[in-house]
């Protein structure tokens, strides 16, 4: 096998399948970002795998000209865990949604993050069930009126970033479908991170939940409502950077920079071992209608699960030599019955 990775273009990463998302869906721009990222990463198509569950987002693997597996509802992180552990040489991406990843498959997502399996997990959050035609999701706001909740939904939504940080995920980020470059650079960071990476992508469902993120993502509202997280930089936002985030006894909160002074602003440290500050940042916004952090919340390097598994296998082989079946079969107490003899030798 040659060591030179062939130079590719977006076209090489585009499969021959007709894309069947609704016209205007946010999923298209996410797909484009991914197909544009791949040539930039300089990776091989045959070594790249996309695994998904069920839902609109989960059709994604069919459109990537790589190995792909469209599995069953909620189980993509579990299938991907098996593949990533068995084949550490592969780049394994998981594509999921707010229903697939946080409702029916919440358990697997949480445990893949906890174990720090070497996966890149991208959760398309549109705050609605699309493929089943418009029921509320575990990220829908309280009071959401849908077909299944004609009087408004009662359950409080999950904050996916808080959930991932609660599981002590080692890479946690948020991006959105209106900014291809930001998506691309965030996906790249996830690729470069060894261990489980979790990215929430705010994604507009123009059919069942159109405009869910309009208050923070429209061109005019972004400067006031997106709080960019940049490692090593004071956290501030607003058209002229006039607002910022401080951390004090009241927790992390938004202030006018003029009131506190620039040097009081919280300097973002994505590599902080304790996820508590990142968690507080994830709580700054109660929903996508007020200033919301975007970018990398947490990125810490720590042993990934697969490397630990590989190490145990290597150590066992070193200690005991490669497995030999005949030795295994005689590893318990044995006795020999001789030919023609009636008894033990």
């Amino acid at each position: 096998m040659t060591d030179t990775v062939p130079v590719t273009t977006k076209k090489d990463w585009t499969s021959d399948q007709e894309v069947r998302w609704c016209p205007g869906c946010g999923d298209y721009s996410i797909l484009t970002a991914m197909q544009m990222l791949m040539p930039e990463l300089g990776v091989r198509r045959e070594s790249t795998v996309f695994i998904s569950g069920i839902g609109c987002s989960s059709r994604f693997p069919y459109y990537m000209n790589t190995y792909g597996l469209h599995s069953i509802h909620g189980r993509a992180p579990a299938l991907a865990t098996g593949l990533a552990l068995a084949r550490p040489d592969l780049d394994v991406w998981v594509i999921t949604g707010d229903g697939d990843g946080l409702s029916i498959g919440g358990n697997h997502l949480m445990h893949a993050l906890r174990r720090n399996v070497n996966l890149n997990i991208i959760l398309f959050n549109n705050q609605i069930y699309g493929l089943t035609k418009g029921q509320y999701s575990p990220t829908s706001e309280v009071g959401k009126v849908t077909k299944s909740t004609p009087f408004g939904s009662l359950d409080r939504p999950f904050n996916p970033i808080s959930l991932a940080l609660g599981a002590e995920a080692t890479f946690v980020a948020r991006t959105h479908d209106m900014d291809r470059k930001h998506m691309q650079s965030t996906f790249k960071r996830a690729y470069e991170h060894k261990g489980a990476s979790f990215i929430e992508v705010y994604q507009n469902c123009n059919v069942f939940n159109d405009g869910a993120f309009e208050q923070i993502l429209s061109k005019e509202s972004r400067p006031n409502n997106l709080i960019p997280l940049e490692h090593g930089q004071p956290i501030r936002f607003g058209p002229d950077g006039e607002r910022g985030v401080v951390l004090d006894a009241k927790g992390a909160r938004i202030v006018d920079v003029a009131d506190v002074g620039e040097d009081k602003l919280l300097v973002h440290d994505e590599a902080r071992e304790d996820p508590a500050v990142a968690f507080m940042l994830s709580r700054l916004a109660h929903g996508p209608y007020e200033p919301t952090p975007i970018g990398v919340f947490r990125a810490v390097e720590t042993a990934d699960y697969g490397s630990g598994m590989d190490r145990q296998l290597a150590e066992a082989q070193e200690r005991r030599g490669p497995g030999e079946l005949s030795k295994l079969l005689t590893s318990g107490a044995t006795w020999t019955v001789g030919a023609g003899a009636n008894g033990h030798a």
Binding site: I51, L69, S71, I72, R75, A78, L79, A80, T81, G82, L83, A84, L85, A86, R87, L90, N107, H108, M110, H111, M309, Q312, L313, E315, A316, Q317, R319, R320, G321, P322, G323, L328
Partner: peptide, 27 residues
């Protein structure tokens, strides 16, 4: 029996157990 290259995952539940095994088979 890790020296036989046997990988074992104590999964989070029964579903994850079989799903991980199937993912490994895919690989």
């Amino acid at each position: 029996h890790k020296n036989f290259g046997v990988r074992t995952l104590q999964a989070e539940d029964e579903i994850a157990g079989i799903a991980a095994a199937l993912g490994a088979s895919f690989g």
